[in-house]
């Protein structure tokens, strides 16, 4: 068992306690529905999984069950938005972003005020296997010129991000996990677009993490500190726009950056960080995450296999620093 890891703001992860991101998100929609009559919610036969069904129960008139027909759901949301509604649409990340070209034209190019929420991201979903995993979604969504991309690290941030999106004008994409996650924020935390968050300061290595791996990264940082390695951990919930300034500032201090995400290393957080560093302050970067197809397995097995758990992150960090040292 890992020992508790302290964040800079005094929040300690309790390794035995995990919280539902989907649940917090679904409840946030219900709360927002009470004060925002323009809020409408759509789902494609996954409302019990995405938790948008909580809203449907409370506001049946403003909830649209679209059936297993994601393209039509996306188009319908754009129509609702063009007539003054604020649609939040839901499916698994892979199925909704799978209708990419509909998003590209109908949502993005119309500058439509639609919030897309994709759940069940990454290998963390476990036993269902690759066909149900959102593992390339950020790569696609981030490529669109005007879609903001968010990935909360815990339940508190998921709720806060939902509140932010309610007031945001324009197309957005948020990805959230199926599995429960460590809580890394206290109740007063507020999400800010374009801002990274230093959860722990350090001097030897910067870990930039997003989503479920953030909690594991903090625990790994704690373990690495026991090995004499001082690690800075940045939570990057705003993947686009990305806080390049913060990453460069941290890189100046540590000289080495490792990214950690439950997504392909091609196109997601890792790529985004490399792009920023290449232009601002090039340092060695190690991208960690998915390098091949995910598969069935327990969440724990999958995080072990893809080196996203505490052992895996610790191990990756050590070998990365070793490679840098040998080159020097």
């Amino acid at each position: 068992m890992s020992s508790a890891a302290q964040t800079t703001n005094g929040m300690a992860i309790v390794p035995e306690q995990k919280f539902s991101m989907r649940g917090a998100y679904g409840k946030a929609l219900v709360e927002l529905g009470k004060t925002h009559p323009e809020l409408v919610v759509l789902d494609a036969d996954l409302s019990s999984s995405t938790k948008s069904g909580l809203f449907g129960k409370e506001f049946p008139d403003r909830f649209f069950q679209m059936g297993i027909a994601e393209s039509n759901m996306i188009g319908t949301a754009v129509g609702l938005a063009s007539s003054g509604k604020k649609p939040f649409l839901h499916s698994f990340a892979c199925f909704v972003v799978g209708r990419f070209e509909v998003i590209k034209l109908a949502v993005a190019y119309n500058e439509s005020n639609v919030a897309i929420t994709g759940t069940h991201v990454g290998v963390g979903i476990g036993e269902d296997g690759y066909s149900q995993m959102g593992t390339e979604d950020l790569g696609m969504m981030r490529a669109l010129p005007n879609v903001i991309c968010l990935q909360p690290a815990d339940d508190v941030e998921a709720r806060s991000a939902a509140e932010f999106l309610m007031d945001y004008e324009g197309p957005s994409y948020m990805r959230i996990t199926r599995q429960n996650v460590y809580r890394v924020h206290d109740e007063n935390y507020r999400f800010e677009l374009g801002r990274g968050e230093v959860l722990r300061s350090g001097t030897d290595l910067t870990l930039v993490a997003s989503g479920a791996p953030v909690g594991y990264s903090l625990l790994a940082a704690e373990r690495l500190s026991g090995l004499g390695i001082s690690v800075e951990v940045i939570n990057m919930a705003s993947i686009r726009p990305l806080d390049g300034e913060l990453i460069a500032e941290s890189a100046r201090k540590t000289g080495a950056v490792m990214t950690v995400e439950d997504h392909s290393v091609r196109g997601g957080l890792g790529s985004a960080v490399c792009e920023e560093l290449a232009e601002r302050y090039p340092v060695p970067v190690m991208r960690t995450g998915l390098r091949e197809f995910g598969g069935s397995g327990t969440e724990a097995d999958n995080y072990r296999i893809h080196k996203l758990d505490v052992d895996g992150i610790t191990d990756n960090a050590r070998s990365f620093l070793e490679v840098i040292r040998n080159k020097a």
């Binding site: 036993e127 269902d128 296997g129 690759y130 149900q132 069935s296 397995g297 296999i305």
Partner: peptide, 13 residues
């Protein structure tokens, strides 16, 4: 079925 490394994935592979 559905175990890590199994050919019997949760959905056909």
């Amino acid at each position: 079925l559905r175990q890590a490394g199994s050919r019997l994935q949760g959905h056909p592979a």
